[in-house]
Simulated assay, not measured.
Amino acid sequence: MRDKDFGPPCARMTFAWGNTTDILFPGWPGAAPRMYAAALGAVFCAAALVEWCNHGRPAQLARSSSGAALSSGLVHAARVGLSYVLMLAVMSFDVGVLIAAVLGHAVGFLAFGCAGFRSLEPWSTEMKTDVGSMGC
């Protein structure tokens, strides 16, 4: 039984390239190439933000230990939520979305998690995160 409000089922279950795919919401980004490029930019930025949440130090901004715990919990929730949204975006089976997500993760890792781009040494204990020791 299918409700008319949800529209037809997804016709494509294989990877394809094109600007006519729906990403996350029906009708988004639409058929305009500019909107498709904006959607890819949003996916790229979301993936880079996930890497910032993985490797950044937002909890150090809080003064008290309870503030640091709350900050860490909120960043963890944001990271998990963004990761699920990115997974759903990639499940649109659009090659452009997949490339934007992978490039966003790569650039985010280089910017926030790679010791070569920061003053930390690769063997420093400050590089450890909950995702493992993935220093460059």
Rank of each mutant, 00 (worst) to 15 (best):
A111V: 14
H76Q: 09
V107L: 11
A111W: 10
M87E: 07
L110G: 10
G108T: 10
S72C: 01
F117G: 07
A69G: 11
M87A: 15
L98V: 14
S83E: 06
L82W: 03
R79T: 06
L82G: 02
P122D: 10
V90F: 07
S92E: 03
P58S: 02
A115T: 15
V85W: 12
G96W: 05
S92G: 12
V95I: 15
F109L: 00
D94L: 04
A100S: 13
M91N: 14
V90P: 01
S66L: 11
F109C: 00
A89N: 07
D94N: 15
F93D: 03
A68K: 15
V75S: 10
F112R: 02
S92N: 07
P58C: 02
A101T: 10
L120W: 12
R79S: 08
L82D: 03
M91G: 04
M87H: 12
V80C: 02
G113I: 04
G67Y: 06
Y84Q: 10
S119R: 15
L120R: 13
F112I: 06
G96C: 03
H105I: 00
S83K: 04
F112A: 05
S64E: 04
A78V: 13
G104S: 08
R118N: 13
E121K: 14
A68F: 03
I99G: 00
L70K: 07
G104E: 10
W123N: 11
S119Y: 09
A62P: 03
A78E: 05
A111N: 05
L120P: 01
G113C: 00
V107Y: 12
G67I: 05
G104P: 05
G96I: 11
L120F: 12
L86W: 09
P122R: 12
S65G: 02
S71R: 01
L74A: 14
S71F: 00
A62Q: 04
H76P: 00
D94K: 02
A62L: 02
R79I: 01
G104N: 08
D94T: 13
S92P: 02
S66Q: 14
A115E: 12
A77F: 10
A89G: 08
V107Q: 08
Y84L: 14
L74Q: 12
V102F: 10
Y84K: 05
A115F: 06
C114G: 02
A89C: 06
H76C: 02
S64Y: 04
H76L: 11
P122V: 08
S92Q: 07
S83Q: 10
H105N: 08
M87T: 15
C114A: 14
H76N: 08
S119I: 12
G113S: 05
G81R: 04
A59I: 03
G116K: 14
V85G: 02
G73Q: 12
W123F: 06
P58E: 03
V97T: 15
V102N: 01
A89P: 07
A62E: 03
L103A: 15
S64R: 09
A111P: 00
F109N: 02
L61C: 01
A100L: 09
L70P: 01
F109P: 00
A68N: 04
